[in-house]
């Protein structure tokens, strides 16, 4: 397990380093960050993120509502 952790940490470190270098190089060579953001916002990742956020929000609201209705649903328990 320790060896696996070492291998994973090395891979993660290399991937993060490469990603940071790519972002830095792109930024330095004239990347338009606003265009990147708007493009990704209209793309499947943005939809995916939006869907995930919507799902989490709905789950939170449902749980909150369930907890609020507990005394009414189980009066014997909450007196």
């Amino acid at each position: 397990m320790k060896k696996a952790w070492n291998v994973i940490i090395v891979i993660v470190f290399i991937a993060v380093l490469l990603g940071a270098i790519a972002i830095g190089v792109g930024y330095l060579t004239g990347a338009d960050m606003e265009q990147v953001y708007t493009t990704l916002a209209d793309s499947p990742p943005a939809y995916f993120i939006q869907n995930m956020i919507n799902y989490c929000t709905q789950a939170y609201e449902y749980t909150q509502q369930f907890i609020a209705e507990l005394p009414a649903r189980f009066p014997a328990l909450f007196g």
């Binding site: 790519a22 972002i23 190089v25 930024y27 060579t29 990147v36």
Partner: peptide
């Protein structure tokens, strides 16, 4: 544009 592609890939 390659620069935008690099940022997204990073």
């Amino acid at each position: 544009k390659l620069a935008n592609l690099l940022v997204a890939l990073g």
